[in-house]
Design a protein around this nucleic acid. Structure first.
Length: 421
DNA sequence: TCTGGGGTCCTAGGACCC
DNA sequence: TCTGGGGTCCTAGGACCC
């Protein structure tokens, strides 16, 4: 019989900030998206003030000022490193682990049926807290979908103290009745709406729904969800992260961009970042797409969205080659007299370094480029990123996204270590 | 004034094959 | 009058996730 635990960090980004600023415990805290645009993480206290997930910062500014909510720009360097620490801690409890997202991991506890799972859960929880400072909630159940539900309830219930075991539990039915259908993993807005029209309102209702109806409207994915609710494990643990199929770098500008020159700087900047990711994955790209858009929230301005994909003559991981083709794609989509708000670069048709299909007519010497890329990457890794870069990316970059409330990168930069007086 | 970023999977439908 | 059957591949778009 299968047994899964889902470990989920509580309000992850907020908790990362609190580890280094414990005076913010029990105080309202929010973390903003890129460009300080939207609210993407809230402490419980901030949630209670009515600050919604994904709300634009400027719309809740009044509440934030009034209640002296602490505000942070997102600091992905810090969050990524804190995530690594949490995951390494979890590894101690079982080797069968799937890192599901930056703040969540599934553990396969199938071999642990004869121990006290509630106890084990609490031990995991206290160890993570002690070793990393991160508060986590843990849900245990017979399928991943049910473990997600257990986790959801563990967070909400006072009595659970963050650990809830629903495997072979007499409370399972009651638990399912307490979870609205839209909170179920794999059920989005549109399916929830469809369910509502059929009076399917809770996880309990969906568990008992007609399989043919579910299959008809949501295909095999929907079917899997319902079977998992019934305790039949359909979604396996994925221990090795599947290879990436595309790499995307896109960002809004801090102000409107109206010149081709600045758009080119942005495309070069994003392509550089994407190429770094590409080399980190040990891949070459076979195509590059560039997309541009104006601010779609502005109803009184000309709207324009477009993208173009260029197939590369040979797969490559060379930044300058990718920038060159990125520019070609940009020229095809760029239109004058538009107020651009965002651009992005997508690398696709990824292939492993070793089995790249060479072009018959390609006479370039790739070893030179390979060594150059290695040198650039190692310089940027040893020192700060962007220590060395491409001139076409621009120097000042007046358009680049702003992070006005960013905390220190406490764990990854010598010059930003926490100072204790 | 101010509205995020990065992914995956599935399906339907068209193009094409013999 | 009457117009097959079985398949693959690709793409765009929808839905979902964090």
């Amino acid at each position: 019989m299968k047994l899964f635990a889902l470990i989920d960090c509580n309000n992850f980004y907020v908790s990362c900030e609190r580890v280094f600023k414990p005076q913010l415990n029990q105080k309202p805290v929010v973390v903003l998206s890129n460009n300080d645009g939207c609210i993407i993480a809230r402490s419980n206290e901030a949630k209670q003030l009515g600050i919604g997930m994904g709300e634009p910062f400027f719309k809740v500014k009044e509440i934030i000022d009034k209640h002296q909510v602490s505000v942070f720009s997102s600091n992905y360097t810090l969050y990524g490193d804190m995530s690594r620490r949490v995951m390494e801690t979890l590894c101690e409890f079982t080797p069968d682990m799937e890192i599901y997202s930056i703040d969540e991991a599934f553990l396969d506890l199938s071999g642990y049926a004869n121990i006290d799972l509630d106890d084990y859960g609490r031990k995991i929880q206290s160890t993570v807290k002690q070793w990393t400072g991160m508060p986590v909630s843990i849900g245990i159940a017979r399928t991943k979908t049910l473990a997600k539900i257990a986790n959801h309830l563990a967070k909400k219930s006072q009595r659970a103290c963050g650990v809830l075991n629903l495997a072979y539990s007499p409370w399972l039915e009651k638990a399912l009745k307490a979870v609205p259908v839209e909170k179920i993993w794999g059920v989005g807005k549109s399916f929830a709406k469809l369910c509502a029209s059929r009076n399917i309102e809770t996880a309990f209702d969906l568990r008992n729904a007609d399989l043919d109806w579910v299959k008809k409207h949501r295909g095999v994915m929907g079917l899997r969800t319902v079977l998992e609710l019934r305790g039949e494990s359909c979604i396996d643990l994925e221990q090795t992260a599947p290879a990436k199929k595309g790499i995307c770098v896109s960002q809004s500008f801090c102000r409107k961009v109206t010149s081709l020159d600045e758009m080119k700087e942005a495309v070069a900047t994003y392509t550089t970042r994407a190429a770094e990711k590409l080399r980190k994955e040990k891949k070459c790209a076979g195509a590059i797409s560039v997309f541009v858009k104006t601010n779609l929230f502005k109803t009184n301005e000309q709207r324009y969205v477009n993208s173009h994909t260029i197939e590369l003559p040979t797969h490559t991981q060379d930044t300058s080659t990718l920038i060159e083709h990125g520019f070609a794609a940009l020229h095809l989509v760029y239109r004058d007299k538009c107020n651009y708000k965002k651009a992005g670069v997508i690398l696709s048709q990824l292939a492993n370094n070793e089995n790249v299909q060479l072009n018959l007519f390609d006479t370039n010497d790739h070893t030179k480029s390979k060594h150059l890329m290695e040198a650039i990457d190692s310089i940027n890794q040893q020192h700060a990123s962007n220590t060395i870069g491409y001139a076409s990316s621009g120097i000042e970059k007046p358009w680049i996204a702003k992070f006005n409330h960013r905390s220190q990168r406490y764990t990854t930069r010598w010059d930003e270590l926490l100072c204790v007086k």
